[in-house]
Design a protein around this nucleic acid. Structure first.
Lengths: 189, 189
DNA sequence: TATGACATGTAATCTGTTACATGATTAG
DNA sequence: CTAATCATGTAACAGATTACATGTCATA
């Protein structure tokens, strides 16, 4: 069979569904928290949940009688949890660096509850490893850009570089945080 | 008439078309430079160019006889340049902070050649002004997040905060760069 | 003569946006 | 009684992805 294809919104939903929720609950998360990157419109979320259910990744059960209008609560199936773990534990590729930094952060944010702190650390190290050569490439490209572009052009490019350096520093900090935690609690072994 | 609606890719094309280019040239820019965020697929670019031409924002002229296969070179029309300027000079809203940081950088990158350095500076100041309250909001939300989320959750959130702080620092640096330039060359007055 | 770079396009499909439609319950 | 909030959905449309189709020219 064809390998399951899940768009970004689908993974965001799978991650949030580690805690059983209705479509409405999920919409509220997207509209009220800093996950506003994803659409909170019913026209995006309800069809996405239907697709996930058709793929067997979530299962919805209607809650009757609790006073309000019927609510359909969705839960991850074991297949759904497996897909979520697979997504989270994928190594970070060079390709992920380009427009998908937000997706990596989402994977990391879910990693601890979905897979465990070892996976969180592994993801961070994988990110660090991908970041270094990517940054080298950016620095090299910068020399070219600075020679031909107007100030606003190379300044914008420099902003991208600084942002990436900032991400790398954060990764070090996050790794250090996990390793300190690990020593306290016993960690990997 | 309905106000012209242009998706992100359309603006990217308008900006690049300050220098007349064929669809193929544009694709190469997207695939070979750090503008890989935008699709370099023909199925995205050629239809987008057709839409822009239908809206009267660009005009394509076929270059024959230069040896290779026919090449259609697109140029900005005056209407297209006006739309580009309007897009660039829009003040930065709180809403732009959310998933549209890349779009703001693109606007800034094009600002100097399309409108002039005064517009570049204005855009930076507008960004700075939007960034400050946005950062305050993030810090406040962080306190809540840290109390309820696992380490990977709040660390991911912290990454967003650091990235935003980094952007603000860059804005200061870019403003300083422009103001130094301005004193040298006579600038605004 | 076959491969790869140049160069442009279309068609099927998927996803998201926008706007609408429905209906129950609670607060003022 | 009316408005707001809870709660779910559909339909029309726009745009992107993927894959395919076409054709030229240079070079190995």
């Amino acid at each position: 069979m064809a390998p399951i294809k899940i768009p970004a919104l689908g993974y965001a939903l799978l991650g949030l569904l580690q805690k059983p929720s209705s479509g409405y609950d999920l919409r509220k998360v997207f509209s009220s928290t800093s996950m506003k990157t994803y659409s909170d419109s019913p026209g995006a979320i309800y069809p996405a949940l239907q697709r996930l259910e058709k793929q067997g990744l979530v299962r919805g059960t209607i809650e009757e009688g609790s006073g309000l209008r019927r609510r359909q609560v969705f839960r991850l199936t074991s297949k759904g949890l497996a897909e979520l773990k697979k997504w989270i534990t994928r190594p970070v590729s060079r390709d992920d660096m380009i427009g998908k930094q937000a997706e990596i952060m989402l994977r990391f944010a879910f990693s601890e509850t979905a897979v465990g702190r070892d996976a969180s650390l592994a993801l961070l190290k994988s990110l660090e490893a991908a970041l270094k050569p990517y940054l080298d490439g950016l620095h090299e490209e910068f020399r070219t850009v600075k020679a031909v572009a107007p100030a606003s052009g190379w300044l914008a490019f420099e902003c991208g570089i600084r942002g990436t350096e900032c991400l790398l520093e954060w990764a070090h900090y996050a790794i250090a945080t996990y390793e300190k935690e690990g020593r306290k609690k016993g960690g990997t072994s």
